[in-house]
Every structure is written in C-alpha cells, then in structure tokens.
C-alpha cells in the first residue's frame, strides 16, 4: 500500500534521511520508533509532500506521490496528523472536522461526508458533545481526538500519526492507543511515529527503528520488544507502557 523507497533528505549539508525504505500494508499498524532527532518527523514530512526528497520516492498503491503537492497527496489518501495536534483553535470542533473533508468538497461526496461525520463522532464520543465548542478550549486528549478525527474526515487509506501521545496523561494515552487499534477495521492503515515505544508496540503489528536518519532495525513488534539491545539502545529501559512520552 504505502511504500517508501530509498529516500534521502538533507537540510543543507546535514543529511537527515539516508536510504530510508519502509512499507505499510493494507490493514496494518506499523510503528516508526527512534530517539528525538532521529529523523522521524522529517520522514513524515517527505511522505506528506511537505518536503521533496533529494532521492528516492514515495508510492501509494503504485502511484508516485513524492514531489507532488500536499493537496494531491491528501486526495490520494495519505493524511498526516501532525505532532502537537495543531487543531484550528478558534474554530469549532465541527468546523475542524469539516476542514478535514476539504479534499472531498464536491457535491458527489456530500452523502459520504455526512456519514463520516457520524462515524467520527461514534469513534470519539467526547467530540460529539463538544461540536460547537472552539477546538482550542478542549483538553489535550480531546484535541488529539479532533486532530485524528479531522484527518479521518479526509477518508485516508493510510493515516500518519506523529507522536499522538505527546503530553497526554497515561490514561488518556491508553484511550488514544485503543482508538488507533480500531482504525484498520475502518479500512485505514496506520504509520505510528512514537517516542513512547512500548505504548506504540502494544498496538502495532510491525515496527521500524530509525537512528541518525537510517532504518537500523525492522521486525514484528514482538521481535523489537524481545531484542534486549534494541530495548536499551533505542527505546530506553525506563520507558513503560502508557508513559507520557514527553520530550525532555
């Protein structure tokens, strides 16, 4: 489905990504792990079309998306939920969700979009109660739900989640991860970028470990969790499932 092939990216002389390849299959949740500064967010920006790779390409269902406008990438079905949620604070929850469906603004989508509104409110019950409230006045967990709901309104085939647990309390983090687990049933694969590695691996099928801009390891969630060296070097022995995953 999503296929990233040998992508390179540099910020001036600094190589941020080197020969990065990964795939996300239909119905899969794939976790991308790595320390702060490993290049995770850069990789997501390349996948979303915010940055053009120096080399390599990004494909979705065989269609080349790298180097194309973000609006086309979104229309193709690749949607990112950015780090730090980035909801449109002064706009209501409903307006935020409506903007998520911006790529489906044609008349022919109207029925499906209104069905998807109900679907999102079903998936995130707190949002249904706060439809008319400005999104900026919601709690961190609820804002994360707005950000995810907004992205789901674009009817993505693959959802890219950048640090969804960032700054959230353990209980709320659990709630968000539980919802992520349900996404494949909705026909949406997930690429989950997390510093909270144990939390991410508890919902992911597979994972990649990114260090200094290269994929160092890939395997099933159990394999990564079972590798003592990986645990200590990249995931950190002090991290436990449901920890807040705050950046230092």
């Amino acid at each position: 489905m999503l296929s990233v092939q040998s992508v390179d990216y540099s910020y001036g002389p600094v190589k941020a990504l080197r020969e990065v390849s990964l795939t996300v299959g239909p119905g899969e949740i794939v976790s991308l792990l790595g320390a702060n500064g490993a290049g995770k967010t850069t990789l997501l920006s390349v996948i979303s079309g915010l940055l053009a790779p120096a080399r390599g390409q990004v494909l979705l269902g065989g269609q080349v998306l790298s180097g194309r406008k973000t609006s086309l990438v979104v229309e193709a079905g690749l949607v990112q939920v950015p780090e730090g949620r980035q909801v449109f604070g002064p706009l209501s929850v409903e307006e935020n969700l409506q903007l998520g469906a911006y790529c489906r603004r044609g008349r022919q989508h109207r029925q499906q979009v209104s069905r998807d509104f109900e679907q999102v409110y079903h998936l995130f019950p707190p949002l249904a109660r706060r439809r008319r409230q400005p999104a900026g006045t919601l709690s961190g967990g609820e804002q994360q739900m707005v950000a995810m709901g907004r992205a789901l309104m674009a009817a993505p085939k693959v959802l890219l989640l950048d640090e969804p647990s960032l700054g959230l309390a353990p209980l709320v983090t659990r709630e968000i991860f539980d919802i992520i687990k349900k996404l494949p049933e909705q026909g949406c694969s997930v690429l989950l970028v997390e510093q909270n590695a144990l939390g991410a691996l508890s919902v992911a099928h597979r994972g990649y470990v990114l260090t200094n801009g290269s994929i160092r390891f890939s395997g099933s969630a159990a394999e990564i969790l079972g590798d003592r060296q990986l645990r200590e070097a990249f995931l950190g022995p002090e991290r436990f499932e449901g920890s807040t995953g705050n950046k230092p």
């Binding site: 915010l50 979104v74 950015p82 449109f88 790529c103 674009a154």
Partner: peptide
C-alpha cells in the same frame, strides 16, 4: 490560524 496544518488537510 495554522498554515502547516491547513496544508496537511489538503
């Protein structure tokens, strides 16, 4: 409000 988030919504 947020050009980057808007771009990510297409």
């Amino acid at each position: 409000i947020n050009p980057k988030a808007a771009a990510l919504m297409g």
